[in-house]
Design a protein around this nucleic acid. Sequence first.
DNA 1: GGAGATTATGGCAGTGGCTGACAATTGACA
DNA 2: TGTCAATTGTCAGCCACTGCCATAATCTCC
Lengths: 228, 228
Amino acid sequence: MKTEQETEQTAGRPSGLCGGLRERKKRRTRDALVRAALELFVAKGYERTTVDEIADAVDVSQRTFFRYFSNKEEVAFALQELIETRFLTEVRARPAGEPPMPALRRAVTKAWLTIDEEMKAVAPPQLHMRMYQIIESTPALLAVHLRRQQETEERIAQEIARREGLDIDADPRPRVLVAAFAGAMRVAGKVWGEGDDWTSDAMRKLSDRYLAALEPALAQNWRTPSGN
Amino acid sequence: MKTEQETEQTAGRPSGLCGGLRERKKRRTRDALVRAALELFVAKGYERTTVDEIADAVDVSQRTFFRYFSNKEEVAFALQELIETRFLTEVRARPAGEPPMPALRRAVTKAWLTIDEEMKAVAPPQLHMRMYQIIESTPALLAVHLRRQQETEERIAQEIARREGLDIDADPRPRVLVAAFAGAMRVAGKVWGEGDDWTSDAMRKLSDRYLAALEPALAQNWRTPSGN
DNA sequence: GGAGATTATGGCAGTGGCTGACAATTGACA
DNA sequence: TGTCAATTGTCAGCCACTGCCATAATCTCC
C-alpha cells in the first residue's frame, strides 16, 4: 500500500505540528534534504554537488534521497513549487465576473504578498534567491524550470477557459493570453534575478511594468518612447 | 554492418559538396547518426533507446557519438535547429522600416516556405514530424526544447532592439514582444503536432490564427466570439 | 610517392545519476 | 507485547558521459 505524500502542503503551518511521529519525521527529513541541497548548490554550484553529498549531509542513504525526490533537479525547485501553487490558488480565487487579464494581474500581485512568509518555513530567503539565480544560469535547471512553468501555464489556461465558459481547444484566446502573460512574467523574473533588489515588492513592480508593456509592444508604432 | 547512404544528400547540398574527404566523411557520419537516432527514437521511444544502440547502428563507438553530440538530447534536435536558424535568418532579412510585429509574422511565413526542402536532406519528413511529437511528449526533451526556444527568443529580441535602435535592457518592449510572439507560436506548434495535417502550409495557417488571437486575447472584453 | 604533422577514432577505466530487489528497522495499533 | 505496514539501508547493476592514450586515417609539403 502507498501512503499519499502530497498531504503536507498545508501552507502557513510550521512543520511538525500535524500527523503522527512517522509523518513528522518524513517532513523533517524532506526539509533537511532541501535545505542541505540548497546550501550545497549555492556553495559549490549545482553540477559540482553530488547526490551523495546531499544525502551524507542529512545522514541518510542516497537511495533515500531518491525516495523523496525523483531526481536531483527536483530538490532545487522548492521555492518555484511554492510560487506556482500560490499563484494558481490566487487565480482560482478571483471573482467570476473579472476579465481574464486583470484577473491574472491581480492574482500575481496578491500571490507575492504572502510568498515571503511561506518560503521562510524551509530555508532563509537569501538561500532561495541564490537558488533562483543558479536555476537561471544552469542549463539543465533552466530547462526543467521552463517545462514546469509551461505545465503551470496549461493549468492556468484551463482555469481561464472555465471562467469564461469557453472550450479551450476551440478558442485560442485562453492559451494565447496565458502564454503572452507568462512570457512577460518570465522576462520580469529574469530581470529581478539579475538585479539587486530581491524584495517581493520589487518583483511586483517589475511584473506591473512588463505586463503594462505587453500591449504597447504589440502595437505597430514604437516611435513613442515608453516603458522606462 | 556498414550503412551507406552517401548518395542522397550530396545532391542538393552546398555543405555536402565542399571540403576534402575528411570533412565529407564527418558530415556523412553525423547525418547517419541523426538518421539512426531518429529511427530508433521513433521505433522504441527516446528513453528506451541507448546511445550504444545508436552508435552500433552506424558502426561507430559510443565515444565517437559523444564527439559529434555533446549529449543524447542534442541528436534529437536536428529539425528544430533548422527551423530556428531559418527563422532567425528571415528576421534579419526583413526591410529596416517594417514594424516589429509584422516583421516577425512575415519572417515566420517565409521561413516555413523553405523548411520542407531543407529537412529532407537528413531524413524523411515523416520521421522529423514523429520526432517532434516525441519531443513534445518526453519531459526531458520538452525541457531542452523550451530552453533552446528561449535562447532563440533572446537572439530575436536583440535583433528587434537593434532594428528599432533601442537599448534592450532599458526598454522592455523587444523582449516582451518576442516573448508574447513566441508563446503564441509555441501554442500553434503544439496544436500542429497533435493534429493530423503535417504540411508546412498547415503550420503557416495555424501560426496566422494564433498570432491574430494575440491582441483580442489581451483585450478586456471576450464576449464577442472570435478565433474559430 | 613518401615522411611527418594533424585529426578522427576506438578502447578502457572511472564517475555520477538512478533503479530494482531484498533484508533490517522503526512506528502504528490492537 | 506482538503483529503489520511503512521506511530505510545495502548492494548490484544500467546508462549517460568524460579523460586518457594508442592507433589509424587523412592532409601537407617536398
